[in-house]
Amino acid sequence: MAECCKTDKGDKKKINYYIPFLLIPLAVLIYIFLEQGVDFLVYGILNLDKNSHLTESIRFFLYDTPKVFILLTVIVFVVGIIRSYFSPEKTRKALEGKPLFAGNVMAASLGILTPFCTCSAIPLFIGFVESGIPLGVTFSFLIAAPMINEVALVLLFGLFGWKTALLYASTGLLIAIVSGWVIGKLKVERFVEEWVYEIKAGDFQMAEQKVTFTDRIQAGHTAVVDIVSKVWIYIVAGIAVGAAVHGYVPENFMASIMGKEAWWSVPLAVLIGVPLYSNAAGIIPILQALLEKGASLGTALAFMMSVIGLSLPEMIILRKIIKIPLIVIFISVVATGIMIVGFLFNWIY
């Protein structure tokens, strides 16, 4: 059997082409009837006590896990296809010679769409600097790329509705634009390691390969396998924690520590969140549980943004090319932006 599959590589791609399109309607159907299905299973077949906390926890877990996974798979697949149209090289070309503010807006928007991994932050930074893109614009890109994350967007949409998801994406974008612009105004060029400016980057011309739509489907498929295999354990663990809190912690337990009356909860949430690093998937189900128990939306969002947007590993990587003062400026400007967003949400709601 193993032998046959090795030689059948060519056919495998063809199969991948239409399978996703058959699965999407199926996923939508499951998604629509999920709540009824879970209720039927929990109350009908298992015949669990409707008023027990344990039943509530089980129901929460059984409903949220498939829901989140369906949303995640579909969106990551679509985003994977969209991203195949973008690359850091194209983004750099688009940003060259753009004036400061317009450049910040473009860089932040492209930061969401361009495939980017923190491990490539150094070559990307140098590549941008090399082609004369202002530091502030480069930072807008570096802030937006991790902060606005498709996994977080999916989870917010699935668990809290489209308004929260939209608020997250738009305020995240705003933070990236304004922070980059502020950093650009601060004249921080001297805090970049000298050798960065001395590097003579080669003129990179990758042999133009014809990218077919099948290749893009393949890219979407790869993204799903990549991301889901990495985050599934965090999602399950996160939902399990959420389920436990859902069933047991008394209502409004969190309100006194993370509610909107406690103004200091926003800076505290950011202070705790900045050094922490978790992928978006792991943190959101926990947030859901917190919110349900009375934590305010602003505080919760600020916590999430600081966890996924700023992280210790990223700073350690960036330290190789920028000096400590710029790292401090970078963290302070972005953290301030996140705090303002947190306060704003607490004030609006």
């Binding site: 690359s87 850091p88 090289e89 750099r92 495939p115 980017f116 991994c117 491990c119 490539s120 150094i122 070559p123 990307l124 140098i126 590549g127 941008f128 090399e130 050798w195 590097i199 003579k200 980057a201 080669g202 003129d203 990179f204 011309q205 990758m206 042999a207 190789k320």
Partner: peptide, 26 residues
Amino acid sequence: DIKQIMAYGVMTTPALVIDGKVVAAG
């Protein structure tokens, strides 16, 4: 070495170079 990597002009790693030509990046 980052300086040598940049000499190829790539902005994403890993990249694969065959006989001086970048054939894959990122």
